[in-house]
Computed example of a mutant assay.
Amino acid sequence: MIHWEGVMPAVTTKFTSEDELDLAMFEKNIRAQVDAGVHGIILGGTLGEASTLANEEKETLIKAALEIVGHKVPVIINIAEQSTKEAIAVAQNAEKLGAKGLMVLPPMRYKATDHETVVYFKAIANSTSLPIMIYNNPVDYKIEVTLDMMEELLECDNIQAIKESTRDITNVIRLKNRFGDRLKVFTGVDTLGLESLVIGADGWVAGLVCAYPAETVAIYELVKAGKINEALDIYRWFMPLLELDISPQLVQNIKLAEVATEIGTEHVRAPRLPLQGKERERVIKVIDDAMKNRPVLPEYKNLKSEV
């Protein structure tokens, strides 16, 4: 069982300079996330460069994450496959390995119809007992999961949450109005994090949390405790960094931020390459400016929620 709430980082995959998995740095980052108070770990998303990972590497990361976190937080596996058959295989293998949940994208590459998308999601849900978060990101993946489609999907008891990344923040309210607590709503856009939480989102699947876990969790906990102004102070500082998440080079950007906070390296897997030239200078300046003004956080753990 997963309590679908809180901050869940979509973690990066750490590589060595020889393009092998860097499990030592992976462990350092995961421990930093857990120590900061995140509520789950999501493996194998876009930030995790999953499309470049071999199946055995994915298994290695799942096993390593499960060993690192123990029973402290759930490990959730992202599914972004090209065929229903492959997606089902990934889901069943994740369950066998001990993962606690799934985050499922619509079919990759093929722009499925609404009906095909619903059938795809249901086939995965019916193949496993793991709880599922649907990832709704029509901006990047060109398929929107509408409210009517979600109504059909909720016929599957284990479809329990949605990562809402339409960029239309009012969709958080629409989802809550229609489905109430039957569907837990997470924002998936870093630059809409605080706003989404204030209007009722249950959680935040975050990106810059990979480099700044404490700041991200602090914003969530302060909002839930009704301390909006304190959360806003951190969020204003955070915004230039959060904007690094809404870029085709978000992986390179966030890995540079992880270097600054000493919980990552900037090694990426080709065809991605480290940032170069003026764009690299721009991103490093954003990070350097933020590090010079990094806020002292209030005590954010064990706050009493007002929600």
Rank of each mutant, 00 (worst) to 15 (best):
E59N: 15
K96W: 09
L105S: 10
E67Y: 01
V223Y: 08
R109N: 14
G203K: 07
A161Y: 03
R182G: 12
L183T: 00
P240V: 13
N253Q: 11
M8Q: 08
E57S: 13
K58D: 09
L192T: 02
I124W: 01
A87D: 11
A64V: 03
A99Y: 02
N126F: 05
R167L: 15
K301D: 14
K96Y: 12
T170A: 13
Y110K: 07
K224T: 03
Y220G: 05
I79Q: 00
K100P: 05
E5T: 09
D289M: 05
D114Y: 03
G40M: 05
L153A: 04
L241F: 02
T113E: 12
I159H: 03
R182P: 07
L241C: 09
S129E: 06
G44A: 13
L222G: 07
E299I: 06
T187D: 12
W204Y: 13
M1C: 04
V198D: 07
P9S: 09
N253K: 03
L183M: 09
L97R: 06
V217P: 00
E243A: 11
L250E: 02
V205A: 12
I79K: 01
Q33S: 08
L154M: 14
E56F: 01
V296A: 15
I162V: 11
A80M: 08
G48M: 04
L153I: 03
I162E: 00
G277M: 11
D114R: 03
K122P: 08
R174V: 05
Y300P: 08
S129K: 08
F26H: 14
V268Q: 02
N136D: 15
H267I: 02
K278H: 14
L43G: 02
V296E: 15
T13I: 01
D35W: 06
R31F: 05
G200H: 13
F26R: 04
N302I: 06
I219A: 01
E27K: 09
G70E: 06
L105K: 00
L53P: 00
E299R: 10
A65T: 10
I62R: 06
S83C: 04
I284G: 01
K72A: 06
R109W: 14
L183E: 01
R269H: 11
V73F: 06
K100V: 05
M133V: 01
L192M: 11
F186G: 04
I76D: 03
G180S: 13
Y141A: 07
Q249K: 15
D22F: 04
R282A: 14
V118E: 10
